[in-house]
Amino acid sequence: MITAPNADPGQHDPPDYSQVQSSPEFTELRCAHRSFAFPLTLAFVLWYLGYVLLSSYAGDFMATRVAGHLNVALVLGIAQFVTTFLIAWWYSRHAAARLDPRAQAIKARLEGATAAPQTPAPQTAARQAGAAQADAPGDGPEQTGVQEAGA
């Protein structure tokens, strides 16, 4: 659903941030960040608080032996470490695949536009943002065309 907006680019020297903010490319970037980071934050805070509550109020359960002298409390404590490492790795993978290419494309276009406001951007470059390669430093041809320069 990537469509090139046909809004007026305006002639501001600094980028027109309000227009960028409402562009589909930016909306996608925001959504890709929020729909990942917000629920995950809620989840790990609840998992941590749940663990604290279990430690405080479920002593018998936590004291259950698992193997040797290792009990449920220690296993869940180590599990907090493991999930922290995993979430950090998972987020970084998500960011590299879904956030960085989108952010990079918008940034390159805006800074290109600021540096040379008179240069017309390529029209309606409706490329698949999700399929962008991870490390493409987006230059001219990479532009997504939120701000059609036509003024």
Binding site: A37, L40, F44, Y48, S55, G77, Q80, Y91
Partner: peptide, 24 residues
């Protein structure tokens, strides 16, 4: 023993808030 360990877990998990919402 275990209760001393409990303290350090919050100090670590906290970094996820910085990673996901604040640092960048």
């Amino acid at each position: 023993g275990y209760d001393g360990f409990l303290y350090s877990i919050g100090f670590l998990v906290a970094w996820l808030v910085a990673l996901l919402l604040v640092a960048e």
